[in-house]
């Protein structure tokens, strides 16, 4: 029983990290139909920038803030200069964003070197809650809390504010949204910035958990994609459920069937897609 409880807890906490990464990705997908393979790089670069901030100032909150904002700016520049022209050209999007991912990977190697780092978590977030035989690391609880807050804020903004209504309108039908006077370009740019911001923030938060190292970008990217695909592109609820599902599948896969752990992750996704090509909550 303890095994199951702790594995479920581990799965949920990893799912929380994935939600931070994939929440923005799904909005970008849903709104602009842009396949952004640079999203994993935002995660890694956010972690690196956060690392530098921690080294300089020692402040964890500042690291999250600076890392997230810096990478959001980078994402907007990339979008303004290249990506927004490639609407509807999937192949062009894939190749361009992979190109950026490779360039960012190399630049990160130049700036931060090839050694793996871990972002030091503040003392308040280290240690664990002990309940008899069970053991819950505080940092994992913190990640779940951050994801919950972000989910609630995103939900509130999307469902209860004017900007959110504009965003939903753009997801549903960008042309009609433009027709009724919504500045689709600006909304799109904002969503792209938000996606990069969340991914980079996740990079800082995750940097204290999975570490910051060359290759982390392409390692986490498929997970984010799985979440988005399973949940359905553009659906925040889908991203939330998808994250939990992927976190749990990944954890139980690795614990129970180590030889087939990636198979247990990707095969259910392929099965879901075969039944519902648009994902659980997606619309075509």
């Amino acid at each position: 029983m303890d095994f199951w409880i702790s594995q479920v807890f581990n799965g949920i906490s990893y799912g929380a990290l994935l939600f931070l990464l994939a929440g923005g990705l799904t909005l970008i997908f849903g709104m602009m139909r842009i396949i952004n393979l640079t999203h994993g790089s935002y995660f890694l670069l956010g972690g690196y920038v956060g690392l530098t901030v921690i080294w300089r100032t020692g402040s964890f909150p500042l690291a999250i803030l600076v890392g997230a904002v810096a990478i959001a700016v980078l994402g907007v520049v990339q979008w303004r200069l290249f990506l927004h022209r490639l609407a509807g050209e999937e192949l062009g999007q894939v190749l361009t964003t992979v190109g950026f991912a490779l360039i960012f990977q190399d630049l990160a190697l130049v700036i931060w070197g090839g050694e793996p780092y871990t972002i030091p978590a503040p003392a308040a977030l280290t240690g664990a809650f002990n309940t008899g035989t069970l053991y819950f690391p505080v940092y994992r609880v913190f990640m779940i809390g951050v994801a919950a807050v972000v989910a609630v804020v995103l939900w509130f903004v999307l469902e209860r504010t004017r900007v959110g209504a504009m965003m939903r309108a753009t997801v549903d039908d960008a042309e009609m949204a433009g027709g009724v006077g919504i500045d689709v370009r600006r909304i799109s740019m904002g969503v792209f910035a938000l996606g990069a911001l969340l991914a980079a923030g996740a990079g800082v938060v995750g940097g204290a958990f999975v570490g910051v190292y060359p290759g982390a970008d392409f390692e986490i990217l498929p997970y984010a994609f799985v979440v988005v695909i399973v949940g359905g592109m553009g659906s925040l609820r889908g991203a939330l459920i998808g994250s939990l599902l992927v976190g749990l599948l990944d954890n139980f896969g690795k614990a129970l069937f180590p030889e087939f752990s990636y198979f247990t992750l990707f095969a259910p996704m392929a099965a879901i897609l075969a039944i519902r090509p648009t994902g659980l909550f997606g619309r075509a």
Binding site: V94, F225, I229, M233, L265, F266, A270, L273
Partner: peptide
């Protein structure tokens, strides 16, 4: 599986299937 989807979704599902193959090679 893949031909049930088109466009972006086709890309995604082939990515997933490719990862299935990679995952088996890596972990099996």
């Amino acid at each position: 599986l893949a031909l049930r989807a088109t466009g972006v979704y086709f890309l995604m599902i082939t990515l997933a299937l490719g990862m299935v193959a990679w995952g088996l090679a890596y972990r099996w």
